[in-house]
Design a protein around this nucleic acid. Structure first.
Lengths: 196, 196
DNA sequence: CCTACCGATCGGTAGG
DNA sequence: CCTACCGATCGGTAGG
């Protein structure tokens, strides 16, 4: 019956617990013994479910990357829309992915550098491609006269930076629902803090 | 005569090299043997200059904290100025500290959680106090009718987030001088991306 | 999934 | 600043 608790496969349980530990203690500072203990088993037993510690990090980082790309694609699917509207949708999608699994997002944002090669290089290429998507939206928004900025690349980095700080303070049980957070972030970034 | 290279004390050399390693590889993943090798000596020899690995992290993090506070105090010294002007100065000061030593800034921003207690708690209290300073400026800017935002705490976090992403892409030899970067960041954050 | 273990490496110290 | 070393812990494996 197990009414409330969702039944996760052992592998999914390991992923989830590893994500939480990597987030709070960092990848390098988390030992496989800690992870095993958090799951209530012995260190050696982990290896009947996973190949290595590195594999855990790899799966976390690349699953998130997939989610970000899927969300971006959906947000910009309607080519008839103004770029500024697509940008707003893309911001909301980005926030949705971040808030859906804050722990995994934090690992994605801060622990990717511990990926071993060639995964690390591959990861950076994906991230660059994702940023390029936002850059293009801002560029087109300027051409359509809806946006303005002296430096598109600069503006893109700043925008994503504001969004990516979210996992460091967002609490899933907070009073603001993710959609409202996304809305406010988009407003603040697009309209600024200055009055008129 | 050692014309160009500044003569650093051995301890300062250790700090500097440790900062660079902690930044690129992370605190936990950096071994004292790596650090020693980068300095051209044996691991054991480090301990005639420092007490522990932890001491290195502590010094880096708290020196930066001092710099941020000193800059903020100078930026907001003139109580006769409108809060919005003080805020702009504080943003510029923050960017100046970040760009002055990007490696140390990155360690300050990402490796502080490896501080052992009670330093870690003390550090978080300092950070909270610093954020409160920005929050107050934004609050007063609203009262003086120069700023607007539905949520001051939210706006403060977003603003600092945008600034704090800088060490992850800033290159000291880039074409934009720090003052210009500060100016653009302040503009983008205060005025937004939207046209009119 | 456990027991028992491997070689490697860790932060740090003693003695010079 | 080096040599030589300490106990502890690391990721991972063999065999069951």
């Amino acid at each position: 019956m197990e009414a409330t608790a969702p039944t996760l496969s052992r592998k999914a349980q390991i992923d989830q617990t590893a994500t939480a530990l990597f987030r709070t203690r960092g990848f390098a500072a988390t030992s496989m013994r800690e992870l095993a203990e958090a799951l209530g088993l012995e260190a050696g037993s982990l290896y009947s479910h996973i190949k290595s510690k590195q594999e855990l990090l790899h799966r976390i980082c690349f699953r998130l990357a997939d989610d970000f790309f899927a969300g971006f694609a959906a947000a910009t699917h309607d080519a008839a829309e103004p770029a500024a509207v697509q940008l707003r949708r893309a911001i909301e999608s980005h926030v949705r992915v971040l808030t859906q699994d804050v722990a995994a997002s934090a690992v994605f944002l801060h622990e990717w550098r511990h990926l071993s090669e060639p995964a690390r290089t591959e990861f950076l290429a994906l991230r660059e491609r994702y940023e390029a998507g936002f850059r293009l939206l801002i560029q087109r928004g300027i051409e359509q006269n809806d946006l303005r900025t002296p430096d598109v690349a600069f503006a893109t980095l700043t925008l994503l930076a504001s969004l990516n700080w979210l996992p460091s303070w967002y609490k899933p049980d907070g009073k603001l629902p993710p959609s409202e957070i996304a809305h406010r972030l988009a407003d603040q970034l697009l309209l600024g803090l200055a009055n008129s």
